[in-house]
Simulated scan of single mutants.
Amino acid sequence: MEVLKVSASSKPGLVAGALAAVIREEGTVEMQTIGAGALNQAIKAIAIARGFVAPSGIDIYCIPAFTDIEIGGEKRTAIKLIVESKK
């Protein structure tokens, strides 16, 4: 499964384009965020991507979950958003 890492400085439109492309190809993608700003950008990207794929008859939904990741040898808790398509 493709993993998109989203930060607080990510541009939602660009993330949405990447998200839509992966959804069209694979049908599922995981987005990883750390912090409120990053989560905000990811949610905006999902809303925008939904508009990108809707004309082709694809609807998307997301499943949020916590996950532990390691950054620079330090363990951090992240929120992952599994985005899947339903036709």
Rank of each mutant, 00 (worst) to 15 (best):
S7C: 00
K86E: 14
A47S: 14
L4N: 05
L4C: 04
I43H: 12
G17N: 05
A78L: 08
E70G: 02
T77D: 00
A36S: 15
A65M: 09
E70F: 06
V53K: 10
F66C: 02
E70C: 07
A36P: 06
L19S: 10
A65N: 08
S7E: 00
Q32H: 11
T33D: 06
G72H: 10
L19K: 09
S56G: 06
D68I: 10
A38P: 05
M1Q: 03
I79P: 06
A18K: 13
I71T: 09
K11A: 06
G37A: 07
V83C: 14
T77G: 10
T33Q: 06
G17M: 05
A20H: 06
I23S: 06
E30V: 13
G37S: 01
P64R: 01
K5L: 04
R24C: 03
Q41Y: 05
Q41T: 08
L81V: 01
L19R: 11
G57P: 01
S85R: 14
G72Q: 11
K5I: 08
D59Q: 15
A36E: 14
D68W: 08
K80W: 03
K5H: 11
L19Q: 12
K86Y: 15
T28Y: 12
E25I: 07
G13C: 04
G57H: 02
C62D: 07
R76M: 14
N40L: 08
K86L: 14
T77Q: 15
A49Q: 00
A21D: 11
R24D: 06
A36G: 11
D59V: 15
A47V: 14
V3C: 01
A16G: 10
A8N: 00
G27M: 10
A16M: 13
G73P: 12
A36R: 15
V53A: 08
L4A: 03
G73V: 09
V22E: 09
I23W: 03
Q41S: 11
A45Q: 04
E74Q: 13
E84G: 14
C62W: 12
I82P: 05
F66P: 01
I82W: 12
R50D: 09
I43P: 08
P64G: 00
G72N: 15
I71Q: 10
A78Q: 12
I69G: 08
L4P: 04
L39A: 01
E84F: 10
A54K: 11
I60F: 10
A21H: 05
G37M: 02
E30Q: 08
Q41P: 00
E26F: 15
E84V: 15
T67F: 02
S56T: 07
I69R: 08
I82L: 15
S85V: 07
G51C: 07
E74V: 15
S10R: 00
I60L: 13
A47Q: 13
V6W: 08
Q41F: 07
A8K: 00
A18I: 03
I79R: 05
R50F: 04
T67C: 05
E30R: 13
A78G: 13
M1V: 05
E25G: 05
I79N: 13
I48A: 06
F52T: 00
A38W: 09
K86N: 14
A16V: 12
L14S: 07
